[in-house]
Amino acid sequence: MADIVVDRRRGARRARWLAEVGWKYPLALVVIFLATFPLLYVVSVAVAQNSTLTGSTRLFGSFSTANFVALGETSFWTWCLNTIIIGSATAVGSVLMGAAAAYAFSRFQFRGRRFALTSLLIVQMFPQMLAFVAIYLLLLTIGDVIPALGINSKLALIAVYLGGALGSNTFLMYGFFNTIPKSLDEAAKIDGATHSQIYWGIILRLVTPILAVVGLLSFIGTFGDFILARIILTQESSWTLAVGMYQWVASELNANWGLFTAGSVIASLPILILFFALQKYIVGGLTAGSVKG
């Protein structure tokens, strides 16, 4: 009798577990499958002997590390380094600028605030498709004065990226800043803290998750961009991964998919590592925060 009760209880608990948690595992598998199956294709091409991107539905027909070895003969690793430098600098810059602007919009009342906020967002929407001549000319002009910011300089590319950093990043952060109760800064202000102390000491600590998200997103954005990078970085040795790898496959008639896919597989690793590492900030950032004291 007692056994039956225990069994029933156990059964009920299991049913509840299934209903509340258990079903999420198979769902996760499905999502993971859908998210990754096209990429299996990429990996399959990367390790194939004769590589065409979509020439066959047969995956992993042959195995060879030749494509990965061949990467060593190209400037791939130089591009990797460039990408990481440019990506990190842009991410740090975007976070700092975006957070500062978001703080101002979230905490200060000033005339034209609403209009400025809207304009920031809208200016970013300008289709830049035809702007490559403009950017080129602009950098040439600046480069005449400050050579380090001219064409083919990584610093110039970072600066151009930062020019686009304010729009959506400010918004992303602005929303989160607003969720931090204003009473916190009021209290600090009464304690005699200056605005910069409140900003650096209190607010930024509370919005760490969003800083991580913005940093990650802007790193990924820089990583994937090849339109601006292609205009600005004119020498092979200063290219980023996206620019360099794109020219392997840019020709309609003769594309080197083997190198490209092998490169992509390696190139996606830093992003995955970064995401994995930043997860604790992205999810669960506030649990130990000072909101609860």
């Binding site: 500062a100 919009f105 920031l120 970013q124 950017i135 602009l138 930062l162 686009g164």
Partner: peptide
């Protein structure tokens, strides 16, 4: 707080 980002925006975005 706004000016650092705004400067970059003015030079590069509005330029194009």
């Amino acid at each position: 707080y706004i000016v650092p980002g705004l400067l970059f925006l003015l030079v590069f975005q509005l330029g194009s």
